[in-house]
Nucleic acid binder design. Sequence first.
RNA 1: CAAGUAGAUUGCCUUAUCGCUGUUUCGAUUUAUCGAGAUGGAGGAAAGUCCGAACACCGUAGUGUAAUCAUAGUGGUUAACGACCACCAGUCGUGAGGCUAGGAAAAGUGCAACAGAAAGUAUGUACAGGUAAUGCUGUAGUGAAACCGGGUAAACUCUAUGUGGUGCAAUGUCAUGUAAACUAGUGUUUGAGCGUGCACGCGCGAUGCUAGAGGGUAGACAGCUAAAGUUUAUUAGUAAUAAUAAACGCAGAUAAAUGAUAAGGGGCAUUUUUUUAGAAAAAUGUACAGAAUUCGGCUUAUAAAUUUACUUGAUUA
Length: 127
Amino acid sequence: MKFTYNKSEKLKSEKLITKLFTEGKSVSAYPLRLVFLKTTFQDAVSLKTGVSVPKRNFKKAVDRIRIKRLMREAYRLNKHLVSNNISTQYAFMILYVGKEKPTFIEVEAATKKMFDKFLVKTKNNNS
RNA sequence: CAAGUAGAUUGCCUUAUCGCUGUUUCGAUUUAUCGAGAUGGAGGAAAGUCCGAACACCGUAGUGUAAUCAUAGUGGUUAACGACCACCAGUCGUGAGGCUAGGAAAAGUGCAACAGAAAGUAUGUACAGGUAAUGCUGUAGUGAAACCGGGUAAACUCUAUGUGGUGCAAUGUCAUGUAAACUAGUGUUUGAGCGUGCACGCGCGAUGCUAGAGGGUAGACAGCUAAAGUUUAUUAGUAAUAAUAAACGCAGAUAAAUGAUAAGGGGCAUUUUUUUAGAAAAAUGUACAGAAUUCGGCUUAUAAAUUUACUUGAUUA
């Protein structure tokens, strides 16, 4: 198991992001919200993920960058929960919908909870 | 010692684990990826985007005029500036110093609280003087200012000088896919082409199919980081700054790297407790803030610390 999160695992394509937001489904675990879409892409990874913090809630760039770093870190350490349990490729976008600055412990707990919900939801859909 | 004035500097550190990104070396292969190593990786304001430039494109024959906006003592610095430095003047402060609203009122228009007869078309009252006669002359009284070519330009205005626009999402190169139109070839029952992996067979099949050219979307590359560079020293200058020498080689991401977690330590401030007037312990706090083409300024935010020069007051000798 590798806790990596490099360029090929990041969601970068503008087209795919637009499609994700128009067609994707979502689960939320406050203060996080996950938008996902079953899709395919060239790179040999099972997930492509982006993170986002709205400027509306955090006006200072320092705060936004800090939260994004926490979210990326939580994703990096916990992505095996998802990647070991899915068969097809997914695009993820994790949004921070809270309005307070979080700690890493909060973000990590919310990430785990969110991934559990995601797995439950996708299984139900398949069966 | 206290209070203050003007500058300059700094902007916490270490270790471990797991990661991100640029460059580079080696090794693997699947030839564009993987693995291992080495080595760079946020600021004094990176911020606001308020000025000035470099650079790029668009506009423009050239020149002039007008409008718009900006600037406004004198001299200097600079690539340039509305920035900076020096001096003069005015003004505030006991002082060190701070501030600038510093061109023109003899082109025109406007404005002037209170007081006052009257505030810009002057001239009432009282007293005195004077005349043929008249506010013709003086004094008193209000006011910052009362006829003086008055004041005010931090009112319009005038004068002088400058001023084209858009910003790296600029701009250039490559270019998968694809609609219509264009050009060439080929084809319409003598069947091009497509699907069924190939052949056979079967099915579909006609402004069709193939190619070119074109356009330039997704994306990639260049622009992109060696620059009016940084540090130190010397010299010239009151200074801004300039010259010379030596050393250094200093982020380059793009849904956007420069981190996360844990442990330990340091400085300072505040509070509490202890105490032998030295000090010790504990708790809390430790800012503002995140590059996005690049420079020079300005403005704004900022816990706390260090330091230089000077002023005023007090005490001691």
